[in-house]
Each structure stands twice: as C-alpha cells, then as structure tokens.
C-alpha cells in the first residue's frame, strides 16, 4: 500500500520521473479534451442542439453563474481558469469508480501544484485589475502592521487548499483500500459512493475558494474581510 500515486514510478531518467500521478493526469486531460472535441465538433448555433451540447452548455453556464455569484463581475475572464480547475478535479475524482484507478488529486504534489497555480493567479488577476501599485497597497491596508499577517494568510490558505484536497482524497482512497482488505463486499461500494460525493464536494470547494480568493484580490480589502473557513 502506498499513500500517494507518486510512489508508483513508471519511468525514471535522472531528475525526470514519470510516475502514476502524471500518467493518470494525462489520461484525465485526454478524456476531457477528447470529450470537448467530440461535443464541439458539430456545435449548433441555432435553437436546436444535441443533448451533449446541452449538457456542456449547462455546465459552462452553471460555472459562469457560480463565478458571478461569488462576486466576480466579468465572469468570463476567470472562466477558463476556474472551470478547468473544477472540471479537472471533478473528472479526477469521478474516475475513482474505475477499478485500479487512483485519483491524481490523492497526490500531495498535484494538490500543491494546483494550490500554487491559485496562489500565483490571485496576485496576477489582482494586478491586472488594480495595477501593481494598487494591488500591493492592499497588503498594507489598513496599516503596515498588517503586511506580515497578510502574507502569512496568503501562504497558509494556499497550504490549506492543498492539504484539504489531498487529505480528503487520500483518506478516501485509503479507507477504500483498507475496507477492501477487511470486508471485500458491500462496504467498499458504499465507501466508493461516499468517495464520489466527497470528491465532487471537494472539487466544488477548491474551485469556489479559488474564486473567492481572486474576488478578494480584486477589491480593496476591508480589515475584517477574510476568506470563508471551510
């Protein structure tokens, strides 16, 4: 038993290591891109459209509405980043129903990578919206004394983002693995269903938190404003 799919190394050459996490990530990416290509191959711009196109439109519009609901006015600006985050996490977690599959999100490397992407994107979107000076000024408001606390907050929430997702997914995979050894019938199925629900919830939480962080970066922060604790 291994805690992370990173431990399953398929190929290695010096510092380059091809482990199971990367391979499964490529598989999820391939599924997502191929699905998008197949569905958007014959897109209808008229009133009648296929069921798959309807599903995709529903998903995209729902994500757009969620982003707007968080407080980002120009939702389409952040749609690519946030929607890709949600779709990748959701697809990675949904595939746990496939026997032998280990979600890439059960790897702390993956969750850290995603958290770092969010960590980098937040100041990028903030600078893009307010300019470098305006964004940096938000770190010393209402007083310069808040600067270290703000930096610690940025780092800690990024770390929390990564650890939360990793912990949930890894624990789910671990529980299923343990239950398979103890009670190979019934319980693993129930726990798989629970893992599906947990995975979807975690994908949603990760994406929403990223949106909230970006939205918080776009505004001059009140001293009392902080990210919602989940």
């Amino acid at each position: 038993m291994h805690l992370s799919p990173d431990e399953v190394v398929l190929w290695s050459s010096g510092p380059l290591t091809l482990n199971l996490t990367i391979v499964l990530t490529w598989a999820v990416m391939l599924v997502l891109v191929l699905s998008a290509l197949l569905i958007t191959r014959r897109l209808s711009h008229g009133t009648s459209r296929s069921r798959w196109q309807c599903l995709l439109e529903i998903i995209v519009i729902a994500i757009e509405q969620q982003i707007a609901g968080v407080g980002l006015p120009a939702a389409r600006t952040y749609l690519s980043f946030l929607a890709t985050l949600f779709l990748f996490l959701a697809m990675s977690n949904l595939c746990t129903i496939i026997p032998g599959y280990e979600p890439p999100t059960a790897s702390l490397s993956t969750t850290v990578a995603l958290a770092l992407c969010v960590f980098v994107s937040v100041p990028l979107f903030g600078i893009r919206d307010q300019g470098l000076r305006g964004y940096l000024r938000s770190y010393i408001e209402p007083t310069v004394l808040m600067l270290p606390f703000t930096i610690i907050s940025e780092l800690s929430r990024t770390l929390a983002l990564a650890i939360r997702l990793f912990g949930n997914m890894m624990s789910g995979a671990m529980i299923i693995a343990i239950l398979l050894t103890i009670t190979p019938f019934i319980f693993p199925i129930v726990m798989t269903l629970l893992g599906l629900l947990t995975g979807m919830v975690q994908a949603y939480i990760f994406s929403i938190l990223a949106a909230v962080y970006i939205a918080a970066a776009l505004r001059s922060r009140p001293s009392t404003q902080s990210a919602p604790a989940v």
Binding site: D6, T17, N19, T21, I22, T25, W26, M29, T84, L85, F88, P104, S107, S109, T110, V112, A113, L114, L116, C117
Partner: peptide, 9 residues
C-alpha cells in the same frame, strides 16, 4: 511532479 502537474494544468 509538482512542476509537471502545474504545467499539465
């Protein structure tokens, strides 16, 4: 892997 996953993303 972190870098690769970030690039993949």
């Amino acid at each position: 892997t972190v870098c690769a996953q970030a690039l993949n993303f």
